[in-house]
Design a protein around this nucleic acid. Structure first.
Lengths: 187, 187, 187, 187
DNA sequence: CATGAATGAGGGTTCATTCAT
DNA sequence: GATGAATGAACCCTCATTCAT
C-alpha cells in the first residue's frame, strides 16, 4: 500500500504516475496533470524542472511500487523456483488490475525512440533491477549447471517481457500463463 | 528493396512510415510528414482521412516490408527449424539496420493505451500473421510431440517479442542472440 | 410539392438548400454538400462557378418554395385581410416544420455583413417580393384611407420579419401569434 | 464611451467584439483576432477556454455597451412614451454609426442554427433584458387599459426587432423610421 | 458533362515552458 | 514555496477552389 502523500510534490507525482501510465507519456499534457493534481503550473516546474524530469521521477516511482508489490506478493515464499513463478503470477495480477497497461519502462522507450540520456538511464536502471531479481533467484536454484545460470535468467527475463508486452497487445493474461508454463519447463 | 513510389499517396506513406518508426507516432506531426514528403496538407487528408487512418496504412506497410524481407531472407531455407532460427537472424539484421527501432506494432500499442478500434484491429492482424509464421514452421518440424506444437510456437513467439523489445531498450542484439540460443534449446 | 429533380444540378441544389438552411451557410462546407448529394466536386463547380453562386440559387429556390407553399395555403382565400392573416399562419406552420429555422434571406445577411453584390441583390429581390405581397393585399383592403395603405403594409411587413426572427430566437411561435394579434388590431 | 482596457484580456475581447460584429462570428477567425489584438494565441485560450466562450463574453459586452448607450441617450427623458420613442431613435443612431450592423444577438442565432446551450442562454438573457425595457416603459404609460400593457410591449418589441433587421438588410434607417411611426400610432 | 487528384490558406485548439510577483 | 498570466510553436483537420483527363 502506498501512503497518501498530500504534499504538492507528492500530488503532482501521484497524478503524473497515474496519467502517464493510463494515457501514455506523450498523450498526457502538463495541463491535465496540474488540473487533476490541483496545483499551479509553476508549482510543477518548481518541483520538476521539465516534463522529462517528471518522467524520470515517474519511472522511479513505478519501480518502487512494483518492487513493493512484488515483495509483498513473495512474502513467505522461500524457494527460488517458486519465487520466479510467483513473480509471473504477480505480474498477471498487476496486468489484470491495470487493464493490461504493460511495462511502463518499455512503453516509455517505445514512444520515445530518440530518448534523452536522463530517461534512458532511468529505464536501464529499472530494467537491470528486474533482471537482477531473476539472476538472484536462478543463482539460488539447486541443481543448476554452472555456466547455465546466466542463460537461464536471461531467458526467463525475455519471457517475462515478451509476455508482459503480448498481454498488453491482446488484453489477455494468456501470454503470461504461456510464459509461466515455458519457465516451468526450463527448470 | 522497395520500388520508389513517386505518386503523392506513395510519397506520403513512405515518409510517414519512416518518421513514425524513427520518431514515434505521437511525436511525428502531420506538418513534418507533408514537409518531408513535399505535398500539400490537404493532399494528405485526401488520401488518408485522418492520422489514425495513416497509422493503419503504416502498420500494413510495415508488415508487407517485414514479410518481404523475411521471405527474401529465407529463400532456399527449407528446414522448419532452420527457418525459425533464421527468422531471429533476420530480425537481428533488421534491428541493426534500423538502429534498434523495435517492433512497430508493439510500439504503436505501447504509446496509445486507449487505442482506437481501427488501429487495434490492424495490430492484431499483424501480430497474428507473425504468430502464424511460427506455428506453421513448428507444425512442419519433425519429432514434435503432438499437443506440444502449439505451446512451442507460442513460446518462440514470446521469446521473439521479448528479445525484439529488449534489443530496443538496450540498443544491442544481445537479447536476440540470447533468444536464439533459448529457441535452439527448445527443439 | 416540389418535384424530385434527379439531375446532378438538381441534386446539388436540393442538398445545398437543405444544408444551408439547417446548418447555416458558413457552417456548411462544399465537401458535405457533394458527399450528401452524391456528386463529384468538379461537378458542383461545373454547375455553380462558386459557393456564392450556389448561395444565390439557394435564395431563389427558397423564394420559389415559400411562394408555392403560400399560394397553396391561400388557395380559396379571397378576402385581402384574411390573406394577410393566413400568411402569418402559413409562416407559423413553416416555422414549426423547420424547427424554427427563421427567414433564410435574413439569415444570409446576418452571417455575411460584407455581403457581395450578387447575394445582396438576390436577398433584396426576395424581400421586395415579400413586401409586394403585403402591399398588394393592403391595397385590396376595403376602407383603407388613401395614403395609409403604404404605411400599413410596411408595418405588417415589419411585424412579419420581427416575429419570424423572434420565433427563431425563442424557438416558439408565440411571437408569430403576437404579431397576428397586432395585425388584426391594425385593420 | 468605453474606457480603453489595455490588459491582454481586454484587448482580446475588444478586438473580438469589433470583428465579430463587423464580419460575423463564423467569418472571424481566432488568428485574425489575436493578430489585431496583438496577443499570443495561447493567451486568448488562457482567458477564454474556447471561441464559444469568447462569443458569450462578446454577447455580454454587446449588451453592456448598448445598455450604457441607451441610458446615456435617455438621460433626462422621463416620459415613458417618449423613452420608448427615443429608444428607437437611439437604435437608428447606432445603426448609422455601425453601417447597419443590425442586432448582434439575433445575428449570432441567425448564423448558428445548432447553437450551443451557452450561447443560446446568453442570447435569451440579452433579449429578455431588451424586452423588459419595453415592458417597464409601457407599464409606466398613463392611460393604458389593464391587460393590454403586455401586448403593447410585445408588439413594440416585434417592431423594434423587425426594423433593426430590415435596416440591416436594406442598409437604411427607413424601416426604423417606419417602426417609430407605427409605435406612435399604438399609444 | 463528369470526375479524381491536388493545393494554399486557414480553421480551432493544445503544447511545454517562462517570468514577475 | 507557490502562483496567475503570458508566450511561440505545433497540434490535427477543413476550407473553397482548380485542373488535367
Amino acid at each position: 500500500m502506498v501512503t497518501a502523500d498530500l504534499s504538492v510534490r507528492g500530488q503532482i507525482l501521484e497524478t503524473a504516475d497515474r496519467l502517464f501510465y493510463e494515457q501514455g507519456y506523450n498523450l498526457t499534457g502538463i495541463n491535465q496533470i496540474i488540473e487533476e493534481a490541483g496545483v499551479a503550473k509553476a508549482s510543477l516546474y518548481y518541483h520538476f524542472p521539465s516534463k522529462e524530469d517528471l518522467c524520470v521521477a515517474y519511472l522511479q516511482k513505478r519501480y518502487q511500487n512494483w518492487s513493493a508489490r512484488l515483495s509483498q506478493f513473495l512474502k513467505g515464499v522461500e524457494d527460488p523456483g517458486e519465487r520466479i513463478l510467483q513473480c509471473f503470477e504477480c505480474r498477471s495480477q498487476f496486468l489484470l488490475e491495470t487493464n493490461f497497461g504493460g511495462c511502463s519502462y518499455i512503453r516509455i522507450i517505445a514512444e520515445m525512440p530518440q530518448r534523452t540520456e536522463k530517461i534512458n538511464h532511468q529505464v536501464i536502471i529499472n530494467k537491470e533491477k528486474q533482471r537482477q531479481f531473476f539472476k538472484t533467484q536462478v543463482n539460488n536454484l539447486s541443481g543448476i549447471k554452472p555456466g547455465h545460470a546466466s542463460d537461464l535468467a536471461q531467458t526467463i527475463f525475455l519471457l517475462f517481457d515478451g509476455a508482459t508486452m503480448q498481454s498488453q497487445v491482446y488484453r489477455s493474461i494468456a501470454p503470461m500463463k504461456q510464459a509461466l508454463k515455458a519457465v516451468k519447463a526450463l527448470f
